[in-house]
């Protein structure tokens, strides 16, 4: 048991490292995700033209930007490998669960990178003074974990689709709604410094755990 767990972890680490190397060399996916986020934030900021935007709307906009940029960036998690015919090789040499969690970890890291890139730009362009930075970071991190879990399984589902245009966000959105709704409320509280419901954070964390567990169970049936 411990030996297989250790080798599982080694496989996960190898896959994350491999995807990171390929991501560095083939920057297109990553660049597209960042530029998508930048374009979305710029267009929102330009259209509001520096006028005051309510914190509630701001926090919703931030999550919408993250959701669609993430969709652009992670929908090809499995599909890129399927197109390159490397997915069957990977599936032969690595355990299914190691592939799932390796990909999930990679997706989480790229989403953290995305958020680290876009958040300061967002805060500066909309002139947001964050009152509770700790809450903001915790909420973003908790949200991204769930988004990675659901996103990775959804990316595995869409790989076999013959028509892919737009399919990924359509599938992902309803599944991640239980994360977005409390996350938007918490982000608003972080912007304004208002009192917040800690139970919302618990809801996100619980749903994260359920998504990770469900992805792990369901992936074996694919």
């Amino acid at each position: 048991m411990t030996k297989s767990f250790g080798s599982r972890c080694e496989q996960i680490a190898a896959i994350v490292r491999k995807d990171f190397l390929i991501g560095l060399r083939r920057r297109a996916t990553f660049a597209a995700m960042m530029m998508f986020a930048l374009t979305a934030v710029a267009s929102l900021s330009l259209s509001t033209g520096g006028s005051f935007v309510e914190p509630k709307i701001l926090s919703a906009m931030l999550w919408v930007v993250i959701f669609f940029a993430a969709s652009a960036g992670i929908s090809g998690t499995f599909d890129d490998e399927a197109q390159a015919c490397t997915l069957p090789t990977l599936k032969l040499y690595a355990a299914a669960q190691a592939i799932l969690f390796g990909k999930m970890a990679g997706v989480l890291l790229s989403l953290i990178a995305l958020t680290t890139f876009i958040l300061p730009i967002f805060l500066i362009l909309f002139d947001v003074a964050v009152e509770n930075f700790f809450l903001l970071t915790t909420t973003l991190l908790a949200g991204l974990v769930g988004l990675s879990a659901a996103g990775t399984l959804t990316a595995a589902l869409t790989t076999s689709a013959t028509v892919k245009g737009g399919l990924f966000p359509i599938l992902l959105f309803p599944v991640t709604l239980p994360i977005f709704l409390p996350a938007i409320a918490l982000t608003e509280a972080a912007f304004t410094g208002a009192a917040f419901e800690a139970s919302a954070l618990v809801v996100i964390a619980a749903f994260d755990a359920i998504l990770i567990l469900a992805s792990s169970i369901l992936y074996d049936y694919l």
Binding site: L153, L157, S160, L171, P178, A185, E197, A200, V203, F207
Partner: peptide, 24 residues
């Protein structure tokens, strides 16, 4: 296979929404 997996994944959201939405 794929649609069965999605069906089961999406059903997980329902209890959460029932719990969250009335508060929101």
């Amino acid at each position: 296979k794929v649609s069965a997996v999605y069906s089961l994944l999406s059903v997980l959201t329902v209890p959460f929404l029932v719990f969250i939405l009335p508060r929101m």
